[in-house]
Simulated scan of single mutants.
Amino acid sequence: MPGTLQESVSVWKDDMQLKLVPGNSAGTVTAYYLSSKGSTWDEIDFEFLGNLSGDPYILHTNVFSQGKGNREQQFYLWFDPTADFHTYSILWNPQRIIFSVDGTPIREFKNLESMGVPFPKNQAMRIYSSLWNADDWATRGGLVKTDWSQAPFTASYRNFNANACVWSNGVSSCGTNSSPSTSRTNSWLSEELDSTSQEKLQWVRKNYMIYNYCTDAKRFPQGFPPECKLS
């Protein structure tokens, strides 16, 4: 189920409710992400890696800036994402990107350009969704292939909601001349995690994170990316 919005946005806060492919979903990936175009694209990813029936889905997140990603973090979920709809949210403002599940933050990627870390902020992005075959890598590194006898594979989406600054002719709808009422509506432009949300984030990292690029020494033999010093 591929899809896209018609307008490009420069900053973003959204909620989407998804119910993932039930049963044997091995080899499939249900994706929900923001992306720009071109060879130096920006991208913010939610990807749900299917698995054999009874095994948990893996929630795969990544952040691309200027065409470079390699910032993967993966999580198990604390519920069955195929049994009912759950809300997956992306907050993208000039200071940070926050991934949340049912209102619980699972990942924060801060703007650390002062440390030389590229941050997606200069390219307008669109929202996409898809359900695709990725059995060369999605399940156990590609060891488990898609069982096409289980087709059709179906993921369900509902209750999409978003606030965004829309680019038009090089001008953002969230410019400095916005009215007070517009500024209140766009309070998410400076939103950050409070102490309660920080505690929830640490709970997820402690109990449900299964991969963090910032701890993968084999992948970065010359040293971890600079943002890992603060994670």
Score class of each variant (00 low, 15 high):
residue 142 G to M: 01
residue 83 A to N: 13
residue 165 C to A: 05
residue 82 T to H: 05
residue 97 I to D: 00
residue 63 V to C: 04
residue 161 N to Q: 08
residue 117 V to W: 11
residue 171 V to L: 14
residue 155 A to T: 08
residue 126 R to S: 14
residue 133 N to V: 09
residue 177 N to I: 09
residue 151 A to N: 11
residue 172 S to G: 08
residue 99 F to V: 00
residue 59 L to M: 14
residue 179 S to H: 01
residue 62 N to R: 12
residue 157 Y to V: 08
residue 129 S to Q: 14
residue 144 V to H: 01
residue 57 Y to Q: 06
residue 119 F to R: 04
residue 184 R to A: 15
residue 114 S to V: 13
residue 172 S to I: 10
residue 86 H to P: 07
residue 135 D to A: 08
residue 72 E to Q: 02
residue 138 A to I: 00
residue 113 E to Y: 07
residue 143 L to W: 01
residue 93 N to E: 08
residue 175 G to H: 10
residue 128 Y to C: 10
residue 93 N to L: 12
residue 198 Q to P: 03
residue 199 E to G: 08
residue 161 N to I: 09
residue 112 L to M: 09
residue 122 N to L: 05
residue 147 D to S: 14
residue 158 R to V: 03
residue 102 D to E: 04
residue 138 A to T: 00
residue 143 L to R: 11
residue 67 G to F: 13
residue 104 T to Q: 10
residue 132 W to V: 06
residue 157 Y to K: 09
residue 176 T to S: 13
residue 165 C to L: 13
residue 98 I to F: 09
residue 112 L to C: 04
residue 181 S to F: 11
residue 185 T to I: 15
residue 158 R to H: 07
residue 82 T to Q: 13
residue 156 S to R: 12
residue 187 S to M: 06
residue 183 S to I: 15
residue 107 R to G: 00
residue 79 F to A: 15
residue 135 D to Q: 13
residue 111 N to P: 07
